[in-house]
């Protein structure tokens, strides 16, 4: 097939699928949070509120699009879609089943992680371009956080790479076939690396308890303070997608991807990543937030030594087995 046409088709399928999953995840999250907080969550739009995401979208589209007079129009306007584009680009290298992958890059892991670390650029563009002190503080915090958590995240991602000997994600998943998931085996470093990877991706995606860039109790709404309407929606969606993509990456690198009991296939990767995603909701609605310096301490004093240790342990494991 024409590579351009194939790319376009893949893009259509993956992006649409991701959007649908993300949209109805918001519904699920609101129901979930409601259950945790003794309230029903959305009930009015559609059966058990199922059409709520569509209503939200329509509401956001109708809102006035306000660009502050003092804002930098280029940075301010580009930031919102750029974040979403970057995070969706990560999905290009995720294999859903053997051979079922948009682009099977031989540097797949590296590509995904470098794109997701670029996510800090639109965040800072939004923070700087808004020309608002709260947004600027949020942008500053986002950079500090992303730079700190990048290192342990990469170290944790190195573990499956060392164990497999390949940067290609489909190779990594294939090496975990028949239940030899890296989160379970080798016993020590695999599990630790999985936890570290998961926590660092939470921090990368600015989720509670690491959501200090948009800590609304002190920074009003952080980087999104000046955004309205669909641009706000895009920023919010990008962050949401980032969390979803992080869950998919964690499921692919550590939980065996498409491998599972019964027939293997894309459904297993989807189920695993959605379970991780729901775990993120659980954490989000039950934890308080760290302070900035405590977060840096966590990254530099605990995360990086732990990351180095698991990398060393997995290298020794490969050497002696």
């Amino acid at each position: 097939m024409n590579p351009w046409l194939a790319g376009a088709l893949w893009g259509l399928v993956v992006v649409t699928g991701a959007m649908i999953v993300a949209a109805w995840s918001t519904w699920f999250e609101r129901k979930f949070a409601g259950a945790m907080q003794n309230r029903p969550g959305p009930t009015e739009v559609g059966p058990v509120g199922l059409l709520q995401p569509i209503a939200d979208l329509l509401k956001l589209l109708q809102k006035a699009d306000i660009i502050p007079r003092t804002a930098d129009p280029v940075l301010f306007n580009v930031a919102a879609p750029l974040g979403l584009i970057l995070v969706l680009a990560t999905l290009a290298v995720v294999p859903w089943a053997p051979g079922l992958v948009p682009a099977d890059l031989d540097i797949g892991v590296l590509f995904a992680l470098s794109i997701s670390s670029l996510m800090v650029v639109p965040v800072f563009m939004a923070g700087w371009g808004s020309n608002n002190k709260y947004a600027l503080l949020g942008g500053m915090r986002a950079i500090a956080q992303a730079v700190s958590f990048e290192v342990p995240l990469l170290l944790a991602a190195l573990v499956p790479i060392i164990l497999t000997g390949s940067f290609r994600i489909s190779d990594i998943i294939a090496a975990q076939a028949d239940g030899h998931w890296f989160a379970l085996w080798p016993p020590g470093p695999g599990a630790l690396a999985f936890v570290l990877f998961f926590l660092c991706s939470l921090a990368e995606a600015n989720r509670i308890p690491f959501d200090i860039p948009e800590a609304e109790s002190e920074l009003v709404a952080g980087i999104t303070t000046e955004y309205t309407g669909m641009k706000f929606g895009l920023l919010y969606l990008a962050e949401y997608m980032h969390t979803l993509v992080s869950s998919i990456m964690a499921a692919a690198l550590f939980l065996g991807g498409w491998d599972g009991p019964g027939p293997d296939g894309p459904h297993w990767l989807l189920i695993k990543s959605l379970l991780l995603f729901a775990g993120i909701f659980w954490v989000r609605w039950s934890f308080l937030r760290f302070r900035g310096d405590q977060l840096m301490n966590l990254a530099w004093k605990k995360g990086i030594p732990l990351g180095l240790a698991v990398v060393m342990a997995s290298a020794l494991w490969v050497h002696f087995t």
Binding site: A33, Q37, N38, P209, S217, F287, L288, R289
Partner: peptide, 21 residues
């Protein structure tokens, strides 16, 4: 106080809803 530390979209809100009950 939970809201001050946990945010209106997070664990703080959960504490808030419970104490409000």
């Amino acid at each position: 106080f939970g809201l001050d530390m946990g945010g209106a979209l997070g664990g703080g809100a959960t504490l808030f809803m419970h104490t409000f009950r």
